[in-house]
Design a protein around this nucleic acid. Sequence first.
DNA 1: AAACCTTATGGAAACGTTTCCATGGCAAGC
DNA 2: GCTTGCCATGGAAACGTTTCCATAAGGTTT
Lengths: 350, 350
Amino acid sequence: MAGTTERGEAGERGPGRRAGRPATIKDVAAAAGVGIATVSRVFSGGSVSADTRARVLAAAGELDYRPSAVGRSLKLQRTGGIGLIVPDVTDPFCADLIAGVLDCARTFGEHVLLDAAHGDAAREAAIADRMMEQRVDGIIAVPEGAPAAWRSVVAAGARVVSVDRVLAGAPEILTVLIDDRAGVRALVEYLVGLGHRRIAFLGAGAPAVARERAFRDTLAQLGVAVDEDLVVAARPERDSAYAAAAGLLQRQAGASAVLAAGHLIGEAAVLVARELDLRVPADVSIAMVGDVSWAELCDPPLTAVARPGHDAGYRACELLLRDRARAVGGPVLLPTELVIRGSCGPPRRS
Amino acid sequence: MAGTTERGEAGERGPGRRAGRPATIKDVAAAAGVGIATVSRVFSGGSVSADTRARVLAAAGELDYRPSAVGRSLKLQRTGGIGLIVPDVTDPFCADLIAGVLDCARTFGEHVLLDAAHGDAAREAAIADRMMEQRVDGIIAVPEGAPAAWRSVVAAGARVVSVDRVLAGAPEILTVLIDDRAGVRALVEYLVGLGHRRIAFLGAGAPAVARERAFRDTLAQLGVAVDEDLVVAARPERDSAYAAAAGLLQRQAGASAVLAAGHLIGEAAVLVARELDLRVPADVSIAMVGDVSWAELCDPPLTAVARPGHDAGYRACELLLRDRARAVGGPVLLPTELVIRGSCGPPRRS
DNA sequence: AAACCTTATGGAAACGTTTCCATGGCAAGC
DNA sequence: GCTTGCCATGGAAACGTTTCCATAAGGTTT
């Protein structure tokens, strides 16, 4: 080390450093009169003498140096970032999920890349591809696309955690599920317990097959017949949900209770019931899967099955980051909770 | 070029390539029998002969090669990523904002790093710092922290767009605002037009100062006196909002209408009114700033000022990415819309 | 006092990409 | 036929970091 002369020069921003661009490790090294290896050790926890460390930190502060994550990622071959792909950011469940992932990621010091696929498998694949290019450490998704597409992502070297969807035939993908079966069962048992025998299921079809199955199974178990007229398909979109709800309630099919398979469908049911001047729960009981904030604000407040979105996100992230050893061991199953409010009562005696 | 021999070897994965790791540009070059410069040109749009291009693409497909964004970022000195910092992901306005940013970012082919500050200025600063280390191209934030902190982020070389908050004394920070003044004015004029003279403002204080000011200004303009007893402070959190609403409505202060400064506060007002068996709008009219989805589900549906969160996010992102030339020119001001529903009526004659 | 160990430090290679520059081949113009 | 220019291509440097290795200095042990 040449001594104080260089150290003196260091204070002024050296001629080598360009103004607009952020300082690099070399600038700091030059300013502190040490080698770049030493600067690196100061910032990534190597052993450095107290004196040198102080000098380096002073120089770094002076130059407003921040280590470049890009340089580090290149060298270390990992970026420390996780990708998160959801269907729709504005959906309350997804929002909770995101919050959970963020909370967990913070405890691990990782950052999160977010994107929304809006139910489009091709878009989802493009997003996953992009995230792979970014060399994220792993991807958490509520996948819409085919298992095959996701298997190829795994084959490309990513760790993938699937949340709230089961990717059949992709055993290498960790999964976090919510126990909708138990939730629906509890809800159906509750309704039957109130005396309902003609219970409608609103929202059969694609994303809610498990819920429909649980609905049927539970009724069968309780010895209540399922009237196929009361099982109505609906996709979880406002238009579809509204049409289905109107169709069901208008035709006076004689349902004494309606079980909505999702919160958008529940919303439609509430709206339609109000338009038809049906009193809830006197004329018809309504309950839904998914306990969103408006359920409590409704009049009457809506009975619902709460799904732990935040927990799901947190667990998924934990699974991705903690158990790097591919400790599979079956999907994580998170419990639901039946939140009983005022929207269900005994059926009108007919 | 040595010819077909090397080309032949290329098909089998060469001995140089390790199994677990993703293929690099070198692997592809070797496999295709070309130089790495040529491979780079194929993937980043240089001019390559059709024959060579086909060969490179074939080799790349074979090896499942994806260009490393890390390597590229390092060389290009820009990552093509933008940071987004919001107070709370689960807030409906923030969710809309995020969706808007994502939509815009996609059209520019950029990705988004998301994090939530939860009202903690220190955490916000740490997040911004982290994003700077990631060398994002810019940061969009709903800032909670002091302008000084954000100025230092700008000084460090980032482009920053502030949404829904004005950072006083930081002229170099672009800003997207929502015209709450006009929204509140429209709402107050509507209430006064219905005959209300004793209008309460629920949620005075920190984040809603502009709304409170607009409330006072409009009343003054209309010649209606402000009763300070009816201006109640509340932070936009459930506890605080609930306490404030209960305080106001219980003490029978004689408000004929309540203007809630935010959706959480409006929620509290609705809940408290219901608990006190106040009929809406017969006993008291309620309206709020922020048109969230439950406003329509409420009974009666709530009159509200809609704030364009999606637009705000989209415009912020556009500002960040398009106008790289620091085309400042004052903050962008987005219009609100008064959505009249059933929660406001003429005051009870007393 | 010599040999050895420990500690602090710097040099240099490597990570994967883009791009400048040089090279070589080929066609066109004189 | 020779020069000129263009096009396709490859080599090599650079981006900012981490880490292996070597070196030097100082202290400890025999």
